[in-house]
Simulated scan of single mutants.
Amino acid sequence: MDRLGPLNAFIHAAETRSFTAAGQALGISSSAVGKAIARLEERLGAPLFHRSTRNITLTPEGGRFLKRCQTIFSEIEAAELEIAQSTAPKGTLRVSLPLIGMLMTPPLGAFAKAYPEITLELDFTDRLVDVIEEGFDVVMRTGKVADSNLKMRMLGTYGYVIVGSPAYLAKRGIPREPEELVGHDCLFHRWTATGKLERWIFSREGAELDFQPPASTVANTMEPLIGLAEQGLGLFYTPSFTVRRQLANGTLRSVLDASLRSSGTLQILWPPSRHGSPKIKAFVDVMARTVLAS
């Protein structure tokens, strides 16, 4: 069993082409990774990497050895999953969600109640996380996802609404065309990753309208903006599922519905090495049933 540690270090270094990245993933220093691989090479009597000041590349022997090692660790993971699947889902589940995920409390609460033996660690951010290197079990994201190495399940699509409180609309009037928003207080969400304001996308006669209302208040998370809209301080453009409760109970009303045609997608992703994990499967199933449910 003491041979598995160096093999694991070798796999991480080979897959990332970096001793530093391998060390970060394993929680050890890059020099410790280098020493482990040097001892492995000495035992094997063959070099596994070509080393330069800038990068490392596999030797032919290293390439063949990597395939064998990956097979070994895949079998170990399969054996662990076989045992885990015979028991109730449990353990720690690290989940990365977009900042919009702060508005997903009901689905997250439903999951926590259904699986009390799973400890949720939730990280809310709009930056693109490295799922494998940063040790996340599951990542939930809006928009397009470029990492084709991950398993993915589409949770669904959602539309956008512009909402305001009944008191605000009674006082300031209901806009009938997008251009009338010039005379309104508009609450804008700023994307943390880019620093840009979220575009309010309008359409007219099937074509996108080149118009943006002026911003009266800006925040980098949506939750306070929804609260400000409920308090009658302006109109807010947001995914419809984030204000489902407020629209149902009447604290917010939607306007300009006919001028909004934009939609977004929500997907959930996880590393292929953990495909079949009971806790991941349970989380994916609950989110698929609840997040965008009407």
Rank of each mutant, 00 (worst) to 15 (best):
A9I: 04
I11F: 05
A14D: 08
S18A: 07
T20M: 14
A21K: 15
S31C: 00
A32P: 01
V33Q: 07
G34V: 06
I37T: 01
E41K: 03
L44P: 06
G45S: 05
A46T: 14
A46V: 15
L48R: 01
F49G: 00
L58K: 07
R64C: 00
K67D: 14
Q70V: 09
E80H: 12
T92C: 02
V95I: 09
P98K: 04
L99G: 13
T105V: 14
T105S: 11
P107M: 06
A110T: 13
A112R: 10
L122T: 07
D123M: 09
V131W: 07
E133F: 11
E134S: 13
E134R: 04
F136I: 00
A146I: 11
M154G: 14
T157G: 11
G159P: 10
A167G: 02
K171M: 10
P175F: 11
P175Q: 07
E177H: 13
E177G: 03
P178H: 05
E179K: 13
E180C: 07
L181D: 07
L181N: 02
S203I: 11
E205I: 00
G206R: 00
L209F: 13
P214R: 14
A219W: 02
M222H: 10
F236C: 15
L247T: 01
R253Y: 01
L256Y: 05
A258P: 00
A258R: 09
G264M: 09
I268Y: 10
P271G: 10
P271L: 10
S273C: 06
S273M: 11
G276S: 04
D285V: 02
V286T: 06
V286C: 09
